[in-house]
Amino acid sequence: MSDRKIPEKSVIAAEVLSNEKIAGGIIKMTVAAPQFAEEAQPGQFCNLYPAADRLILPRPVSICDAEKESGTLTFVYAVVGAGTEEFSKLKSGQSLRVSSPLGKGFRMPSGTGQKAVLIGGGVGTAPMLFLAKELKKRNIHCTAVTGFRREPFLSQELKAAGARVITTTDLPSPDYFLGTVVDCMEINEISGDCYFACGPRPMLAAVFDYVQKRGQDVQVSLEERMGCGYGACVGCVCDIREKDKDGREQIQRRKVCKDGPVFMGSEVIWS
């Protein structure tokens, strides 16, 4: 059959080049993985495998940046459990098992000269950096609206990538907008030709609501508890609205790791 493929994905022991705290409980890690950096698309993730025998599941972490020139991948992750705690202790020169980039990432707009709005919530801001860089190469102007509970991160990197950055937090501060990313978008009347969002599900649902009112759609990157992270176990699913060949609408349970993590907001069953 024509679609038979030789194994093209792998898990490698990648050298950790840096692993530093960039905000409370948030770590930025760069690893050497030239082949993966070459293949990576914005919105994809890699499975990071803890070394401890008692931790048997991979941690899917979205790609924050991929540099072909230096052959590196960068991840930004929150220390939330035993696996990410283990990663946080890795020192430069040590190694970490990393999978090939996985999942379907953001679809790039076809035209140039458009305006894109990138919305990131918490660690959901991470994939927006890689996306902003790729959009810039296509001459697409980016506004990044990033929301955090407390301490913002990646603002400088996004600015360096040419994006206009508006940051919101839940704590009053003279430097940031107080409130949610959607409040901020409404008040600042932020709009674009295309939208991309990654963050907690309630934020994604609110963003979809915001763009829908304007007759637009948004690419959302969903999160779900994963098992294998490559489509074999069917542990992570979400309900997606699809049209069958006769144009009738039906709801399908799709794999977040394989069919996503990026879906159109209009396809997702939000309730």
Binding site: I56, L57, V234, G235, C236
Partner: peptide, 17 residues
């Protein structure tokens, strides 16, 4: 269609599905 999510949990040296 299977069950609702979450469908996966990690445990000490194992997992639940």
């Amino acid at each position: 269609t299977g069950n609702d999510t979450p469908r996966i949990a990690e445990t000490y040296g194992g997992m639940l599905n």
